[in-house]
Design a protein around this nucleic acid. Structure first.
Lengths: 343, 343
DNA sequence: CTGTTAGCGCATTCAC
DNA sequence: GTGAATGCGCTAACAG
């Protein structure tokens, strides 16, 4: 793709710098890596040549030498457009930066094929480790056989049939506590909005939801359960369905960010256009910016995605820094806080 | 950092695969790149060996060969934690993906030093092009001399003293129209919340703001101007100051996302705790999730950060696909929409 | 159809 | 202090 030829626009190499400075490539290399065993005046000449040519070391060439790693961590998230994952990536980046590594960030769009391709590409680019928020629909591309010696940390979600280092939220208890708060508030008709079931958080949060119901002698009502909403628009439609029922739920548990926002939009529309029915009490997993400003009864199961990312990165570097570490996968569950913002 | 030695855990190479399959490295290479001129049965053996060893091509090694590029685009944004830039990155990624490239995403945290280091690192990793949302505080690291032949596109902001391909929003007109809407609504005491002045959007949006005032025979009142807020917390404090004035503004122009959210929070707090003063009318640049759900008079200067990213990527690939292109930098201004959500 | 040679940019090893 | 030789993983180009 690039024109070769040693014209002036071609990327300069150590050799170009060496010629310019009137020394050997080796002297340039030495100067670049600290200048040990190079006379000060020679170093000056080298740096001048570097400056003039706009030379940058070729990190790819460096990384193919034996015993050297790329300094890259591959991070695969499901949706860059979701602020949640931006925060998550920021948490990973901060910790990686402390360990002198950069991140390569890729977006899977919740598609298994893209996740698989992304991971493969990351490995091809010699990442030292992988942090993946998996779609959950497949495990083969993440098995040790495929990854070779590249350590993997799963974040936020598990993958069935895959035993790897994992950091999760305390989904079950969070959902349980939040649902219990609704029940304690006198609600018995509680709706549920959730993600597709292939995503483990959807299953775990539903489990907590049901556990709280059972404990109160209640059964989940299938008519009030809507699952599979992956984006705000779908969530909004699902919520509109629930609100449109003859006997609508008096409270809703929303299992994530996207569903909560969709639900809030549906409530908002109804308050403006529809009959003046009191808005259902809403409990939502994940924080929502500005949630505390709304005129809707709202409880948030709160946590910091940045911490989730940071924890995933820490678990990865634990392994990278100590390859002799106990091989058995570790599972960490981060706590969540059930906070009443308005209610 | 990695243990060398040819133990089983070492990353397999073409040679390992070749041995395993009982062929030469060249045959493996050919098979991997499509299988032209390799007998079907030999290919089978090769693929089997690939599978068994968990072999992945070393893209770094491939990319150092003459005439081959890395397939990477370096993207530097200022704040991964801002959903705005997540959307932006998504737009870049989508277009890059169409052109068969991946993105390396880095976060500068609005710090010039990190931006400079990031760009340098990107080049060291042989990115084919750069897309940068600059802090605006320095230009040297982005000059052609430093970048060599790596094309650059600036997004969202300009850098003083740097002439490069740039995609901006129509900041001035957007701010002008929005402010005019306030003036047409009868407001004369209009506050301003903005970013630090080193950021060109802050300057441009202020310019549009002042232009609308002047056109109406008004002067900006220094007592109502607060600039330099980079995050939500600072924006909130600034807004609280304005609200606390003896003669507070009846309307506010907020120059971005972060400031709008901080302002909304300040208004919310005051409505709950303070005296029942009518909330000022707020005009905000950039979309805000859930903005339409609030009980606050709000006008949004709306645009899609994803489009901004996509446009930046398109401008980059224009150059990559046609290196002979007219060298003079291009400037694109994307339109914005002033929409009344509530008011 | 398949294998051998050679070289990409860099730095370790070994001479001088 | 400095330089020459060598090899990292990969694949054009050139035999066979």
């Amino acid at each position: 793709m690039t024109v070769s030829g040693s014209g002036p626009s071609a990327t300069p190499t150590v050799r170009d710098v060496a010629e310019h400075a009137g020394v050997s490539p080796m002297t340039v290399s030495r100067t670049l890596s600290g200048g040990k065993n190079v006379r000060a005046e020679v170093q000056e000449k080298v740096w001048a040549a570097v400056e003039e040519l706009g030379y940058h070391r070729n990190e790819n060439a460096r990384s193919i030498r034996p015993g050297h790693s790329s300094g890259l961590i591959g991070v695969a998230i499901t949706n860059l457009g979701n602020p949640y994952y931006g925060q998550f990536a920021l948490g990973v980046e901060e910790v990686a930066s402390l360990h002198g590594r950069r991140i390569m960030l890729g977006n899977t769009g919740e598609q298994l094929a893209r996740e698989s391709q992304l991971v493969s590409d990351f490995i091809g680019r010699q990442v030292e480790g992988l942090i993946v928020v998996p779609t959950g629909e497949g495990a083969e591309h993440l098995t040790p056989g495929r990854l070779g010696s590249v350590p993997l940390v799963l974040a936020s979600r598990t993958v069935e049939g895959l035993d790897a280092d994992t950091v999760l939220l305390d989904d079950i208890n969070g959902a349980y506590e939040a649902t219990k708060a609704l029940i304690d508030g006198g609600h018995t008709r509680i709706g549920f909005l959730g993600n597709v079931l292939s995503v483990s958080t959807a299953r775990r949060r539903y489990e907590g939801f049901v556990r709280a119901l059972h404990e109160a002698g209640l059964e989940p009502d299938p008519a009030l359960i809507r699952r599979g909403q992956q984006d705000v628009a779908a969530a909004r439609r699902a919520m509109e369905e629930l609100l449109g029922l003859d006997d609508p739920p008096t409270a809703i548990f929303s299992a994530n960010n996207r569903n909560t926002i969709g639900a809030l939009q549906a409530i908002g529309t109804r308050q403006k256009d529809g009959p003046a029915i009191p808005a259902p009490t809403l409990v939502g997993f994940d924080d929502v910016e500005l949630a505390d400003m709304l005129q809707v009864p709202l409880i948030i199961v709160s946590h910091d995605p940045r911490q989730l990312g940071a924890q995933a990165a820490r678990m990865l570097f634990d392994r990278l820094d100590d390859p002799e570490m106990d091989e058995s996968p570790r599972l960490v569950e981060l706590p969540v806080t059930v906070g009443t913002l308005r209610g």
